[in-house]
Amino acid sequence: MHYIFEPGFFANSTVRTALVLGLLVAIVSATIGVFTVVRGQSFAGHALTDVATAGGAGASLAVISPLIGFIGGGVLGAGAMDAIGVQRVKGRDIATGVVLGAATGLSALFLYLVTLQTSTTGSTQTILFGSVFTVSPSTLPDALWLSAVVLGALFVIRRPLMMSSISSELARTRGVRIRLIGLSFMVMLAVAVGLSAIVIGSILSTALLIGPPASALKFSNRFSTAVIFASLLGTLATWLGIILAYDSYYWSASHRGLPVSFFVVAVVVAQFAISSVFAQRRRVRVALSNERHAAPEQVGWI
């Protein structure tokens, strides 16, 4: 066992906090990520992380709670994207791009000013890339209630959201208010990625938002199954990444560990590659068995 869990792994409170927060973020990201992937809003999901990071940098400059900075930044960004026009598929691309471009400009300024203020090195990278080992345990209560709010709100609007994710035309004829649902989803997405950006950093925020749901959706066309699958895959990636990052400290003589984000992303990408291969094989099998029966024109969701 010692080859896997290096000495002091479970005794270390930093590691314990990291494992708990990692679990929480993996589940929230996986759940909202399934909708994000189905709606084709990966870019917006990623962009909101960077916008939230700009908010975080601003907050650390103004010495207010980073949580307010991250989440406030994300929600403002979501509003701006909606105002410019996230509804149209291609217009959405430009709207997201313009907001992301402006937010990165602000990020550059804030982070530059932060480095002028503080003498500690590495603050830029911590804000930009984040590290689950630098999160204080006091974040946990906030992370808990924010996760609960996001998951609860998602549960409330799940049916109209699913319907409008599958076909906005269909949803409109059933009386779903597409614009309202879309905007609510963007706000939830902003809160969720803001939370995960502050806890595990912006790289992992996007990795956990897109990777596990995309892998899960290769196997299941049902929302509920995909959410459960994705949560499991996300948790596995996060924990494995934390263990490996902790271990990597002992790998080299210089004791310079590799970042958690590197390992988690490696696991996430490996999961996606493996599930793509399996899904491909399964599709071929299904296609062969369907040859004699006429298959439906289109495979629908749910």
């Binding site: 890339f129 790289i203 990795a207 897109i210 995309a214 970042p259 984000s261 996430v268 996606f272």
Partner: peptide, 16 residues
């Protein structure tokens, strides 16, 4: 968009 997101995080993680 999924492919791009994964390529992006892979590159950033490598950079980090």
């Amino acid at each position: 968009d999924v492919a791009t997101a994964l390529a992006l995080v892979m590159m950033l993680a490598l950079g980090a």
